[in-house]
């Protein structure tokens, strides 16, 4: 690990200003991903701003009847919250499907959204990776590359990495909004669907956050009801990233929403695909995965996504 300086932040706006001012600064909360990446020198911040003391660890109610989840609320606390379990069960189910108990105890809401991809080549500093070293090439897309876990849609010729979060997939289907404070002290609200960027030619740029901008909360709109499910298909029963995950909210009239994990650089959802839900899984996926560009190794994800959704729809 390269040497770095460290400070504890006491005020969100001041923390954001400080992060913008110090070149190479990063926030640290649970550290479940950042510290691993620092050990491997994939992340090399020169200054860490510890945000754990900011008091943003509460779940409150919004004026609109939704929830405002402080960025430091742990995954464990969020999934266990009685309001979340009652009104947003897809979120509880998704978080429970992720990582392990120990990691969920440390991982925070904002940090979960900011975790980096698990593409194996991203982690091997001896190998080309456009996300890690822009312009160095994509090992996963290169001849002979290993891509079974990686993305099939929203990807580009420079990167096919997926965003690994389960929590974010549920938040996407719930129309969550990311709330931030900018270095200038302004509050900004970013719909989760616009929060993660597609890679294009710049896979190293992953979110809509500006330099220094700090996530302070994630808000959920008023509960939408319906039957809410999350199915994470994976090779082992626990502690594995999704091959495909499906978050589903289905209303009694057959309408609803669908978001996918494990297939794209961000939780994958579209209004057009949602509109197809009354016509079944095939119709939804024909829209949602239209334009998919899988590799030979991960083409099964298209079938898997459709069959997973079909089973969820048949479950009631």
């Amino acid at each position: 690990m390269r040497s770095f300086s460290y400070e504890k932040a006491t005020d969100p706006a001041a923390a954001a200003a400080r992060a913008a001012e110090v070149e190479g600064a990063k926030f640290v909360a649970g550290g479940t991903n950042l510290l691993d990446l620092m050990k491997l020198e994939i992340e090399t911040p020169v200054h860490l701003i510890d945000v754990n003391g900011l008091g943003l660890d509460r779940i409150g109610e919004t004026e609109e009847g939704g929830l405002r989840i402080g960025t430091l609320v742990s995954n464990t606390a969020l999934m266990a919250d009685a309001r979340v379990r009652r009104d947003y069960p897809v979120l509880t189910r998704a978080i429970a499907a992720g990582a392990s108990g120990q990691l969920r105890n440390k991982a925070t809401t904002g940090g979960n959204l900011l975790q980096r991809t698990r593409c194996p080549y991203f982690y091997d500093t001896a190998q080309p990776c456009n996300k890690r070293v822009p312009g160095s090439g994509c090992s996963a897309l290169a001849e002979g590359g290993f891509s079974r876990q990686l993305g099939i849609i929203g990807t580009s010729d420079s990167c096919i990495a997926t965003h690994p979060s389960d929590m974010a997939v549920a938040m996407r289907v719930l129309d969550a909004t990311v709330e931030t404070v900018t270095p200038a002290g302004m509050t900004r609200r970013i719909p989760l669907g616009e929060f993660h960027l597609l890679p294009g030619d710049t896979p190293e740029r992953e979110t809509a956050l500006m330099p220094g901008e700090l996530i302070t909360a994630v808000t959920l709109p008023a509960p939408v009801g319906g039957v809410q499910r999350y199915h994470k298909a994976r090779d082992r029963a626990s502690y594995a990233f999704a091959l495909v995950s499906v978050a589903l909210i289905r209303q009694p009239d057959g309408s609803g929403r669908v978001a996918l994990g494990g297939v794209a650089p961000r939780p994958w959802r579209s209004a057009e695909a949602d509109a197809e839900l009354p016509d079944g899984a095939h119709a939804v996926m024909a829209r949602l995965l239209d334009g998919a560009r899988p590799t030979e190794e991960n083409a099964f994800k298209i079938t898997l996504a459709e069959r997973t959704l079909a089973a969820m729809l048949a479950e009631e």
Binding site: R118, P120, Y121, Y123, D124, Q127, S139, A142, E143, G144, G145, F146, R148, D235, R236, A237, S238, Y239, A240, F241
Partner: peptide, 27 residues
């Protein structure tokens, strides 16, 4: 689940840790 994923161009096993090389877990 266990498989060392061979990158057939690079001549190396690409999955390199207990997240990428999946042994059975308690569940």
């Amino acid at each position: 689940s266990e498989e060392m994923a061979l990158d057939t161009a690079k001549g190396m096993f690409a999955n390199h840790d207990l997240a990428g090389y999946e042994v059975a877990v308690h569940a």
